[in-house]
Write a protein that binds this DNA or RNA. Structure first.
Length: 604
DNA sequence: GTAGGGTTAG
């Protein structure tokens, strides 16, 4: 390369400079490209349209708006013929820098547009969080290729609309557009968040069968997907088989092991990462702290926290403080956790306070809970979850008067609670339940299975833990309310509709209640004893959200498997959700490329 | 010699 630069200084052949710049872009040395452009200007060399496209591409990647504008000025002043390619490059540059108004100005004034003019507009809007606008342009596109589809799918993922992302992937399949490795990464990410293991496995097969480039990004996404779906073994297998790994791979491994309750293995991974001379980043430390929290290693966690800055030169950010609060709080060190918040160098955000509030709930500290809740509501007055959590704590501590007042306050302020819902993938169809749900066509069977389950549980010594039911009513009514929780409906549904050796995997949007957690544990236990033959394997790996409890840590570590993600409000489910009924086996049936989906209803 | 999309937490 040095030789190339030397030669360049001798030549005034612009094409040679272009080749050089293109080479820098390809190896992602965008700053070098810009330097070359500077040098050309100094030498008075006249850049061609290609030169400008290349330097704009570099500006776009670097999000260097100022330099991009300078190049744009140059285009205007020197009256370079605005080719389609050059205009596309300008759109891309402005869109990448978040200047959608400027991007659109060029877009609207174009005489002809191709698919590359549209895609940066779509991607640009998703980058600034305007996913609906992005979709508007996406729908208007006269033609779409795999890049445009992937950009839109990825847009949904950025705003946590994973089900919409999968629905769009399904549409892409039916539109005969072949996905590539970029698409696969996006879809796997959505699977990870939804706990959709079946679809994730299908994607893995698809990649293998269609010879899609299995690069390090794909490997990392697979690892993440398997871990988030609770399948530790398969995640580890992918890790072992990857020919090339990077710091994201290590981070995914550390975090994945941590959230599945393998805290010590996670820390072993961290040591190996350091041994391999891969520098950890701030996210890696999230995983490390998470591992300590899940395994109850308080002192270890503190040590890593202080070591971040002193040994690795990474200043803890607000998220790390959140982890530290979580670590101390879960272990019952509420005062220490509070001290951490009081002394942290930046303003605590609602997540930090929520960690403390969650700990107050576990350890039933009403006063501190009230204080934490107040702090959160100052930051986020619309945070309905806080009210609910505080209600739970009042109920658990039998503070009925406080509870009554708080409920009134919720009504007065028009607080809407996010409905808790449980999601379960069964034969490739995603079923969704809310508390007391009777809309499922097999509702009758579900409730009778639920009764049967409760009988079995009681026989095994279970008594419902009604402490978190925030109704000031008789115990019997509380039990009924408990019994209708969405996760129990999902469990009952899973028990009668899946084969005996099938793992039950449930994803929730909110933190699970204490009682449901106990029921989940007991169900696997008693069905294990009574039906060893049929249910053994299910019990071994079932209720993946309980993986953390298998290692001896108890319910303090749960809630972590309950991945929070945004669920569309139930009122809007209808049309959107219908697309979400991905029937994996149907996709599978054809040659794994373009097959038709049967329409399925989603029950909300 | 030429443009667009990708991974990690709470």
């Amino acid at each position: 390369m040095a030789r190339g630069v030397f030669d360049l200084s001798q030549t005034s052949d612009v094409v040679t400079w272009n080749v050089m710049m293109s080479g820098y872009n390809r190896i992602k040395k965008f700053i070098e490209s810009i330097k070359l452009f500077d040098e050309m200007e100094r030498k008075g060399l006249l850049p061609t349209s290609v030169t400008l496209v290349l330097v704009l591409s570099a500006c776009s990647k670097l999000k260097d708006l100022d330099y991009g504008k300078r190049v744009h000025m140059y285009v205007k002043e020197c009256r370079v013929e605005p080719s389609l390619m050059l205009e596309n490059a300008l759109i891309d540059m402005y869109a990448a820098c978040g200047k959608m108004d400027l991007a659109l100005e060029i877009f609207r004034n174009m005489k002809t547009r191709d698919v590359i003019s549209w895609t940066p507009i779509v991607a640009g809007f998703t980058n600034v969080g305007e996913v609906d606008l992005a979709r508007k342009y996406f729908d208007q596109m006269p033609e779409r290729d795999y890049v445009s589809w992937t950009a839109m799918i990825d847009g949904y993922i950025r705003v946590n609309q994973f089900k919409e992302a999968l629905a769009l992937f399904r549409e892409m399949q039916t539109s005969n557009i072949k996905p590539d490795e970029f698409t696969m990464v996006s879809v796997l990410t959505a699977c990870a968040h939804l706990g959709a293991l079946e679809l994730g496995e299908w994607i893995k097969t698809y990649i293998d069968k269609n010879k899609i480039k299995n690069d390090v990004y794909v490997g990392n996404a697979l690892i993440d997907m398997y871990f988030k779906c609770g399948n530790v073994e398969k995640a580890q297998r992918i890790f072992k088989e990857m020919p090339r790994i990077d710091k994201f791979t290590w981070t995914a491994m550390i975090l994945g092991l941590a959230i599945n309750g393998h805290g010590e293995e996670a820390l072993d991974m961290f040591s190996e990462m350091l041994k391999a001379s891969i520098a950890p980043d701030e996210i890696t430390f999230i995983g490390v702290l998470c591992a300590c929290t899940h395994t109850g290693m308080i002192d270890m966690g503190r040590k890593f926290f202080t070591g971040m800055a002193s040994q690795h030169g990474i200043e803890p950010n607000v998220a790390h403080y959140g982890c530290l609060v979580d670590l101390l709080g879960r272990a019952g060190h509420l005062k220490d956790a509070h001290e951490v918040i009081k002394n942290m160098p930046m303003k605590p955000n609602s997540i930090v306070w929520s960690a403390l509030l969650g700990a107050c709930r576990v350890h039933k500290d009403v006063e501190m809970a009230e204080m934490a809740a107040k702090q959160i509501l100052e930051l986020e007055p619309e945070n309905g979850a806080v009210y609910v959590l505080l209600c739970n704590i009042y109920a658990a501590c039998k503070r009925w008067e406080n509870l009554r007042k708080l409920r009134q306050l919720m009504v007065d302020r028009g607080i809407k609670k996010t409905p808790g819902c449980s999601l379960i993938e069964m034969s490739g169809i995603v079923h969704e339940f809310v508390a007391g749900d009777q809309s499922h066509p097999q509702s009758k069977e579900i409730y009778s299975k639920l009764d049967e389950m409760t009988r079995d549980l009681k026989f095994a010594g279970y008594s419902p833990d009604t402490s978190e039911i925030s109704l000031d009513v008789g115990e019997e009514d509380k039990e009924t309310a408990l019994n209708r929780h969405s996760e129990k409906l999902a469990i009952a549904f899973a028990l009668f509709s899946s084969g005996s050796r099938v793992t039950i995997r449930i994803v929730k949007n909110l933190r699970m209640c204490v009682d449901c957690h106990r029921v989940a544990k007991l169900v696997s236990k008693i069905y294990n004893r009574e039906e060893t033959l049929n249910l053994e394997s299910m019990v071994q790996s079932s209720f993946y959200f309980m993986a953390g409890t298998r290692n001896g840590t108890d319910n303090t570590s749960m809630g972590h498997r309950m991945k929070s993600y945004s669920t569309p409000h139930h009122q809007n489910l209808g049309a959107k959700m219908k697309l979400n009924a991905l029937k994996t086996s149907d996709i599978w049936s054809a040659d794994l490329v373009h097959s038709q989906f049967k329409p399925h209803r989603i029950y909300s």
